[in-house]
């Protein structure tokens, strides 16, 4: 039941930040960033909101500095994998925007049928816009090499579907 407990704790935390995010994006700041998500430009305000959402919803597992759980390449006693880093030392940047969105919204089993993991599905606790903001924030932390590689994977993914 651990996962369920995490998710409901998440609901509370996110319900609180959701309001903050809306307030922030309503503040009229339209300054751009060089990040896109699913082909759409993302504003600096979205990224700032994504940073807050990350701290609230993701950092507990993926690390405040996106560093992942300790020893994240080693399986936990329950057979599942720990939360990997979201910085360039992990493998998040190998996934297309669409895949990252799917995983965050619907869990890893949404992209790998039958796969069991401790990654919660955030579809019930974050809006699509919030998921986009969080992932855009993660993307904004990557060095140029990882950004370029992930842009390529995203382009291939869109071409293929």
């Amino acid at each position: 039941m651990r996962r369920v407990a995490y998710v409901s704790a998440g609901v509370l935390a996110v319900a609180a930040t959701g309001i903050a995010v809306l307030a922030q994006s309503g503040s009229g700041s339209e300054s751009g960033s060089d990040i896109t998500f699913l082909g759409e430009p993302v504003t600096a305000a979205d990224i700032a909101a994504g940073k807050d959402l990350y701290a609230q919803s993701c950092a507990a597992c993926h690390g405040a500095g996106l560093e992942g759980q300790p020893d994240w390449k080693r399986r936990l006693p329950n057979g599942r994998m720990p939360a990997p880093p979201h910085d360039e030392t992990g493998h998040t940047w190998h996934h297309s925007d669409r895949n990252l969105f799917e995983i965050t919204k619907n869990g890893v089993e949404a992209v790998v049928a039958g796969y069991e993991s401790d990654m919660p599905a955030f579809g019930a606790v974050l809006t699509d816009a919030e998921i986009t903001a969080v992932l855009a924030y993660i993307k904004s932390t990557w060095p140029e090499r990882q950004r370029a590689a992930q842009a390529e994977v995203t382009a291939q993914d869109e071409g293929g579907s």
């Binding site: 039941m1 996962r3 039958g114 069991e116 599905a121 579809g123």
Partner: peptide, 18 residues
């Protein structure tokens, strides 16, 4: 056991594997 969560959809493979 697979845990119940809001978005869980049993897949053919998960059932088969079990």
């Amino acid at each position: 056991m697979k845990m119940i969560e809001p978005n869980f959809r049993p897949t053919r493979r998960a059932v088969l594997t079990a």
